[in-house]
Write a protein that binds this DNA or RNA. Structure first.
Lengths: 249, 249
DNA sequence: ATTAAAATTGCAATAGTTTGCGTTTTTTAT
DNA sequence: ATAAAAAACGCAAACTATTGCAATTTTAAT
């Protein structure tokens, strides 16, 4: 992995989570913490983030009366989510996690689709509020302010009581051995509940998330029905996933 | 292989993979790494990619996505909510309804205030997510998409189980006889529950809401502790309200 | 076709970067 | 105060880039 790639990865992560932790990045990227620190310091000196003890936080101009969400590589994300649109059908009950890929997905849901969507992400809910034909239900609870999602027992409890046809789950990291892993424990718990509540589990992410890992396991690959990336379905990097029975789109 | 062909190959690869590695390209194109580097440098100077140590990365765009909310008479609202700021104290448990006045209020909450806030409004929650010291709890439920608030039994139920020190309630309409009234039935129910859950009830609104009415009653004036408007406290339009025991700020 | 100039290519030596490790220093939280 | 975690520092090994140069190929004009 190129250094510049790592930098992109870090900035990407920062956009999603508002902060990054040195040790988590070292784990995710399979690097020494030294190198991560050097990366963070470099990005700091370029004023792209603010290095703090233990990691880094994003520097974002105070948004005044506007809620702005930065999306990295939006074109790529559009490509990914477009491939997932055929999975949607009238009448479905859907659960959506947070993340910018899901946000792009939310925006591209056809106007005439009539579905019920549960979400626990503020930006996703804001986006879906614009949609004329969606029954939208927000799952409340304690807010994880950086990611703008609710977490905790309340969320899990609501999820345990619903039964969805399909869920679209964002991924921070995925690899063959651990499967889907998350940076935060709380979020991993919520995602587990989400998977439990859904007949079908779909995860959309860009290929740079492949073969990275985070501390908290969400689920094994066997629990994923479909993964959607920007890659061609015959790309060698997806081979192992297909072997394990995951549907690759 | 012609140079132009190679360039095309590199750009194709880049489009697909977001990055190229010098050594891989040299191998794939059966060229020396020197030549590949020269190619990459050339493409870099044409701004078609970004040359980095070890290879090159695609120039990735970062789009800004805005959920914008129009706030009418923002200056006036700032004036109103500023008068309410002294009601806030560390340690309070607070409930906030939706509305743009409350949104402006949320934005002006001092950075160092440590409180717990319950809300059922997406924009309010988004705004409060930016605040470093607030414990934020979102009350989930079915979304009323236009107003971007949750409504219904779920919301009422959560509200019935909490006890807040103070609530800040937006007002569609207020008058002496009916008190606070709302345009939507669902919202009126939620606001009732909110008032029930709070020791102290504060409503902020501009004076043009005075002496108007809507179909659904929220509460009588006697249940309001404090109203905050842009008017001077001795303004004759507020006289009647003061007489009924409402604190006027 | 021939030829000279210009561009391209690979090589080798040199220079510069990156990275992980051991050690020391600083920071944080108890 | 003290212990634990994180950061900084210096170093060596591995990797990547730059440079000048000679050999080769391409281009363009007679």
């Amino acid at each position: 992995m190129l250094k510049a790639e790592r930098h992109q990865y870090i900035m990407d992560k920062l956009l999603e989570e508002q902060k990054v932790v040195t040790s988590d990045l070292a784990l995710a990227l399979d690097l020494s913490e030294d190198t991560v620190r050097r990366d963070l310091n470099e990005l700091d000196s370029k004023k792209l983030l603010k290095k703090v003890y233990g990691g880094a936080i994003s520097i974002q101009e105070k948004t005044d009366n506007i809620f702005s969400i930065n999306i990295n590589a939006e074109e790529q994300k559009k490509k990914i989510v477009t491939k997932a649109l055929p999975l949607l059908h009238d009448g479905q009950v859907i659960i959506m996690s947070g993340g910018t890929t899901n946000l792009v997905f939310a925006r591209l849901i056809p106007e005439d689709l009539k579905v019920t969507i549960y979400t626990y992400s503020l930006p996703i809910a804001m986006q879906l509020s614009q949609h004329p034909n969606i029954d939208l239900i927000f799952i409340g609870g304690k807010m994880q302010k950086n990611a703008m999602v609710t977490i905790g027992m309340d969320v899990v409890q609501v999820l345990s009581k619903i039964k969805a046809d399909i869920c679209f789950i964002g991924a921070s990291s995925i690899n063959i051995n651990q499967g889907l892993t998350e940076i935060g424990y709380e979020v991993s718990i919520v995602k587990k509940a989400m998977i439990e509540a859904s007949d079908k589990v779909v995860s959309m992410f860009s290929s740079n998330k492949l073969n990275t890992r985070m501390p908290h396991v969400v689920c094994e690959l066997s629990q994923l029905d479909t993964i959607v990336t920007e890659l061609e379905t015959d790309d060698p990097r997806l081979e192992e996933y297909k072997k394990l029975g995951v549907n690759v789109v």
